[in-house]
Write a protein that binds this DNA or RNA. Structure first.
Lengths: 402, 402
DNA sequence: TTCGTTACTTTCGCGGCAGAACTTTCGAAC
DNA sequence: GTTCGAAAGTTCTGCCGCGAAAGTAACGAA
């Protein structure tokens, strides 16, 4: 029952494939698994037996939805005991640490936040430590911590640089590990969100998948071959150099019409403030644009056009099967969908496949959940695996033929 | 010796992996192959033995370059007898069919072209037939035909639509097959070039690889996971809807600053003609821009900026390991490299990895070579395989873990 | 000569897989 | 209710592919 190992690494490659498939794609019968993994029915019996015996998989409680009048012997869906483990995920902002506890499936069980008096590493570690203590009281099965923040992390542990925290080379992973005694993963927040959506969210099972986040800044992540592509600019504030409209508004750093200057929440608020003189929240601006107030409407329209242009460029060049819009700034989509769609149309071939666009409003707890997913990945893959996908060793080689 | 099968399909998966690796990456010793394919030395003996016995692989003649003072037993590189087979590749333009014969390695052995009196399918088939007859006389081992053209092909056989030929639903594959008796593949020319570069050219062995072609039109192709991504807009004249500069010059179809209107050879010539009044060739315009003539220089500069912007967008969003610029219009790179680089810099994060950009001047025979590569692929993979990469069945599934 | 080194071959044994036969459990037809 | 077919799952067998280890071959260096 509780004979689960501390990591899935001892599982054979076939067993791990089964466990991962069940983890990411809900309860699945053995025959369905056989189809998905391209294995014979016999192999599935062999692979699932040790997994059910060790308690990692259980036969699902057979929901009442099984009234589907199918013929033949009813299937026995296998499921993971998602609640058997708990994971803590944190998102660090300028003034608050947001924390969540999730199940193995990354469903959020609890939220709890802590204000930050300062941005000193010690202060942040203390806040995370106290939150973790509280989490561990309620969830003794807590077995991993993932932390997402705006900035870059080396080896998923050391914060290389974080402009908004003013950090350089802070060994956050080690500090939190020493404070809590739990394994810790530190990663850029956008990267964590991309992993989370690729494993458990909108990008589940997709080969090519793109995420664009809109908030205080912009974020972009690409999944190719089922694995997130790592780049040198990850966590360094992407989008300031995506010039959407060379004749657009001039930003503080001397560039015209960058995506950041057109699309981020602070930029939109600044533009409205500059023209109307009054300070309004993002939501107010969107509401006033809907009501037809000309100045906010113009700013929002410009933002929507920029967003549509970006989405079209992503679709044109990266050709993902799906694009996810996330972050606190996606409210724009609700109020300006026609403009966005028009901009996409204007920048994309009419015969092209329609852009598979999904929008997900994310608050800070969703970002924290991304951190928890990293912790889940570490348990499942051992060490710093990144995404279900071809073996790491294959990354740079020519994949096998046919 | 000549006991090669008509297709590699009877080979086992491991054998085909070995043969493909040798085919695309020159002569390789068994131990080097073992490293690349992640197999043991013993397995390599097992896999290579039937391949050498059947004559598909031979021990390389051991070039004199082996003076490398390495210790131990000298390696016996294995090679493919590239000249054992010949392949015909064709590129159809408005007024000419360009033909080449290549080896198994896609090295061009012969070129021969035929003028087209009309664009009627019968005329084109006749021209290809005559060229093939001539090729077959000189190369009795000719065993496949690949045809590239501007347009879309269904099932690699039927020309769906081709605007410049004025064709719709022309069964070109069947017609040429009946005329020549050889297996025929028909494909969009850009797609063929992408396959060729991905297998034998700049994109060899790369997981993510992008190709941008500049000529009478624009072309774009993306390789992800070692396989070319197919899209609905392939062969339908891409780039007319990539708005690079919303305040750019107005094109005939009412759009401003599209990549096509800024970058293609006809557009550049038209712009120069409109401002100077005289008709100049593309090469003349480039030369006059270099000499400092203001009007051509301005047009060329704008084109270079557009190209740099596009390259940056591709790098930003598709994150390929390499971008290849190809086509007849890449002469632009020679005369305006600094402007292109500046535009890339302006549209890309300064901390990002430098764009791995390669330029390849392509004439029509290079396009024809792309067709030949398709024929090679058919021989090697059987039927319509597309690129070395994960098994086709895996395409839509979640790849196996770790 | 001898030794270490590297490339390749041979042999052996194990693990993972498919395939076939079988069991279980359902719906549908009679 | 009985029978049949269909689908899910299990058990068993055989086989193929791989790695591990030992053996052979061909070199350079001491």
């Amino acid at each position: 029952m509780n004979a689960q190992a501390d990591t899935w690494v001892p599982l054979s490659s076939g067993e791990r494939a089964v466990a991962l498939e069940v983890l990411t794609s809900g309860p699945l019968s053995r025959s369905e698994l056989a189809r998905r993994l391209d294995l014979s029915a016999g192999s599935l019996t062999r692979l699932t037996k040790p997994l059910t015996e060790s308690g990692l998989l259980v036969e699902a409680p057979e929901g009442p939805a099984r009234s589907e009048s199918r013929q033949g012997r009813p299937s026995r869906p296998l499921d993971i005991v998602a609640e058997s483990r708990a994971f803590a995920g944190f998102k660090i902002t300028e003034d608050t640490v947001y924390g969540v506890v999730t199940t193995l499936r990354s469903d959020i069980v609890t939220c709890r936040d802590a204000p930050l008096a300062s941005r000193e590493p010690a202060e942040v570690v203390a806040a995370i430590g106290e939150l973790t203590d509280a989490f561990a009281r309620d969830f003794p099965s807590l077995c991993g911590i993932g932390i997402g923040l705006g900035g870059r992390a080396q080896d998923r542990s050391v914060v290389d640089e974080s402009a908004f925290l003013g950090w350089r080379d802070v060994p956050l992973g080690r500090l939190v590990r020493e404070r809590t005694g739990l394994p810790v993963v530190v990663e850029n927040d956008v990267s964590a969100l991309v992993e989370a959506e690729s494993w458990f969210g909108a990008g589940r099972g997709l080969d090519r998948f793109a995420v664009l986040t809109i908030g205080a800044g912009l974020g972009y992540g690409l999944v190719s071959g089922g694995r997130r592509v790592q780049t040198a600019e990850d966590g360094r504030g992407v989008g300031r150099f995506w010039i959407v409209d060379p004749s657009g508004p001039l930003s503080a750093d001397g560039r015209r019409g960058s995506a950041v200057s057109l699309l981020t929440i602070p930029s939109i608020r600044r533009q409205v403030r500059a023209t109307t003189g009054e300070d309004a929240t993002y939501e107010e601006i969107l509401a006033r644009a809907v009501e037809g107030e000309p100045l906010p409407a113009r700013v929002v329209d410009e933002a929507a056009r920029a967003l549509g242009t970006l989405v079209a460029q992503i679709a044109n060049f990266a050709m993902p099967q799906k694009i996810l819009l996330a972050g606190e700034g996606v409210g724009l989509v609700d109020v300006a969908a026609p403009v966005i769609e028009e901009a996409i149309r204007a920048n994309r071939h009419p015969a092209a496949d329609p852009v598979n666009l999904e929008t997900k409003v994310s608050d800070f707890h969703d970002w924290a959940r991304g951190g928890a997913v990293l912790a889940i990945q570490v348990l499942v893959l051992g060490a710093a695996g990144s995404g279900p996908g071809p073996r790491a060793a294959e990354q740079t080689r020519i994949p096998s033929p046919r």
